[in-house]
């Protein structure tokens, strides 16, 4: 069931997930489109999440943006001035490097795998700030099996730091390691299922990455060879029209529906890019998610040595990193 409407306010709005935003020219969503988008969200009972660019929007946008409860996603240090100071607890700052200060309660830190390794000690310092840290690796497709040990090691080091914080009575939130400890079922991106994206052109997309691909004329596979070939899944005039919507759901993903790497993003865009099927995750995505899952298990066990913690959660020991390798028993 749809719950969120992501509104990309400008083509240069900040990328906040796996896909980079390659669009460099400003292209602000027209006010009329924005109003219609908000109306759509209200009628569908959706929470609106605005994605801001790094420049200040024209004044007339402020009142429209604040005409409804919302969450703001914006570049680090570029908090939008919309005339209201009651910032949402869910607002998100997005950084491409380790920030000195984080204003919002949530930080998305977008790093390549190698940058993540280089800055692992700096990342530890963020844990103690009491913010939720979402580390998003931007080159999942490049992840090779030779990097498995390095990933295990860095997660293990972070586990030590997180454990110390738990011992001090804190509850750090770090998506790669603490999310799985709290989850009893899949909690993924759910693009096209629980959230949908409205782009400046007034069209809907499964997520911003599909809009970027369309604008960059990247390898279009949603509507092959169709006269109106594009990645969109509807528009504000005609409404949503998602082809094969069932394939976006967990039950229609053979590798994922029995998987217990519940914290995995299950990124549809990466799926399409790497396996060509929206419901099929790549080897890279599965392996990384399982390394995180196993490290979360270690952390959970370590915390329980100190005291009772999440007794209802059971992360069992497994001997694979890619469920594809055990698909026959899966």
């Amino acid at each position: 069931m749809l719950q969120y409407l992501v509104i990309i306010l400008d083509d240069t709005s900040v990328a906040y997930c796996h896909a980079d935003n390659p669009l460099e020219e400003r292209n602000l969503m027209p006010l009329e489109t924005l109003k219609k988008g908000i109306l759509f969200g209200m009628k569908q009972n959706l929470m609106i999440q605005y994605v801001f660019p790094d420049y200040a929007l024209p004044e007339e946008y402020a009142s429209i943006i604040e005409s409804i409860d919302n969450v703001k996603i914006y570049p680090i240090g570029k908090k939008p001035d919309t005339g209201l100071n009651d910032e949402s607890e869910a607002d998100v700052e997005v950084a491409m490097d380790i920030p000195e200060n984080v204003d919002a309660q949530n930080l998305v830190l977008r790093l390549s795998f190698s940058e993540m390794l280089k800055q692992k000690d700096e990342i530890v310092k963020l844990f103690a700030q009491g913010k939720r840290i979402n580390l998003c690796i931007t080159d999942v497709e490049q992840f090779a099996d030779e990097q498995i040990e390095a990933y295990k090691q860095v997660l293990n080091e972070w586990n030590t730091a997180l454990l110390d914080l738990y011992k001090q009575g804190q509850s750090p939130q770090f998506n790669l390691l603490t999310d799985r400890m709290m989850l009893e079922k899949m909690h993924n991106c759910e693009a096209g299922v629980s959230n949908i994206t409205l782009a400046p052109n007034g069209k809907f997309y499964l997520c911003p990455a599909f809009y970027y691909d369309e604008r960059m004329q990247v390898f279009n596979q949603m509507n092959h060879h169709q006269p109106s070939s594009d990645n969109s899944v509807g528009d504000l005039e005609k409404g949503l029209d998602i082809p094969n919507p069932q394939l976006l759901k967990l039950n229609y993903a053979p590798l994922c529906r029995k998987c217990d790497a519940y914290q995995c993003r299950r990124c549809l865009w990466l799926n399409r890019k790497l396996t060509w099927d929206l419901n099929t995750p790549s080897h890279q995505q599965c392996v990384m998610a399982h390394i995180e899952r196993n490290a979360s298990r270690d952390l959970l066990n370590d915390i329980r040595k100190v005291g009772e913690f999440m007794p209802e959660i059971n992360i069992k020991e497994i001997d694979y990193l890619d469920p594809f390798d055990v698909r026959k028993e899966f």
Partner: peptide, 26 residues
């Protein structure tokens, strides 16, 4: 109506990501 589903070539071999959906089909 569709583009070829190429899973690799004789020089680089099979891109195993490109056969994952086939091998998980039911």
């Amino acid at each position: 109506d569709k583009d070829a589903w190429i899973i690799g070539n004789i020089k680089d071999g099979i891109d195993k990501n490109k056969i994952r959906s086939f091998l998980t089909l039911d």
